[in-house]
């Protein structure tokens, strides 16, 4: 039985297979409409979510399966003090596969050690978000036609941005990748990502504080939100929240084929005026999330059309 806890749980070939399956689903939706008939997905969301939870549920429904679960810790027995381990043991009696989001880092890993059914990490604190990574990879593949030979700017909260950590891990295995890490000094990527992922894989990278200075070099600009919920100190959040705001004036020097990605939700880090720019891909990215999760559910359940 396979789980997806960390993006590195999947080999490059397995990722390619999932992305190719997602592309086939996009082109042949009817073919997959009953693949999961009789199967149940449990969505255990101890932390709020719009896109991830609903895209998982939509994905299972479009595969002909059913969904059950909860959307906040308050509406589960964890509010009575039940442990994550016990919750997962119980739910694995009722469902064939579980997607879990939790505010504590490592909760899905713990769940995978207790569960009798596959666990998908749907985001754990500021740690990892592997299905967002699959979404990002599918979006890059559809927009650029490749996952190699790309200069990728990652901008904003790189310290607590779990989508950033997972995307760096996944892309570090492809050829010709260069990262430009754009963040305030206080929100730089964690040391373990720098030393044990980027440097270990001999990937070219730079850490900068100005988006304007580097935007012209980028093939991909991956924007992130400074997340209020990750700060213990409100004053730090307020000081850093408006560090980077992408608007049309900053895009003047960007390449004409730049792809702007954002895992969403955004607050104000991308001005609404940018939505009409053909380089904005973040709403397409959200749609891709459903297709790639369909492919992932099928893969972990060992199902074929």
């Amino acid at each position: 039985m396979k789980h997806l806890i960390d993006p590195m749980d999947l080999s490059v070939k397995e990722i390619d297979d999932i992305l190719n399956l997602a592309l086939d689903i996009i082109d042949n939706k009817e073919k997959y409409s009953n693949v999961c008939k009789g199967k149940k997905l449990a969505t255990l969301f101890f932390e709020p979510s719009t896109r991830t939870r609903l895209s998982f549920e939509a994905a299972m429904m479009e595969l002909g399966g059913n969904v059950l679960g909860f959307s906040s810790a308050a509406s589960s027995s964890s509010s009575k003090g039940e442990s994550v381990g016990d919750t997962v043991k119980i739910v694995s009696c009722y469902a064939d596969i579980i997607a879990m989001r939790h505010f504590k880092e490592g909760a899905p890993m713990l769940a995978s050690m207790k569960s009798d059914v596959p666990i998908i990490n749907a985001g754990d604190g500021g740690h990892n978000h592997p299905t967002q990574t699959l979404t990002d990879l599918l979006t890059i593949k559809r927009e650029k036609g490749r996952l190699s030979n790309l200069t990728i700017g990652l901008c904003g909260d790189l310290m607590f941005g779990r989508t950033v950590h997972s995307l760096i891990k996944a892309l570090s295995r492809y050829e010709g990748i260069e990262f430009i890490l754009i963040s305030p000094d206080e929100l730089k990527i964690p040391d373990y990502i720098r030393t044990e992922v980027i440097e270990k894989n001999n990937i070219t990278y730079r850490e900068v504080t100005s988006m304007e200075d580097v935007i012209g070099e980028l093939d991909i600009l991956y924007m992130t939100r400074v997340q209020r919920e990750r700060f213990f100190n409100e004053a730090d959040y307020i000081r850093l929240k408006d560090s980077y705001i992408l608007d049309n004036s900053k895009l003047v020097t960007a390449k004409s084929d730049l792809s702007i990605l954002h895992p969403l939700p955004r607050v104000n880090e991308i001005a609404v005026e940018v939505d009409d720019d053909p380089r904005a891909c973040y709403f397409k990215q959200a749609l891709n999330g459903k297709f790639v999760r369909m492919a992932l559910i099928m893969t972990l359940l060992g199902l074929e059309a």
């Binding site: 381990g85 504590k104 880092e105 713990l110 754990d124 500021g126």
Partner: peptide
Amino acid sequence: TNPRCITTTEQGI
């Protein structure tokens, strides 16, 4: 000792 880690709250882990 990471306060955000599941090990800080889960019993018997």
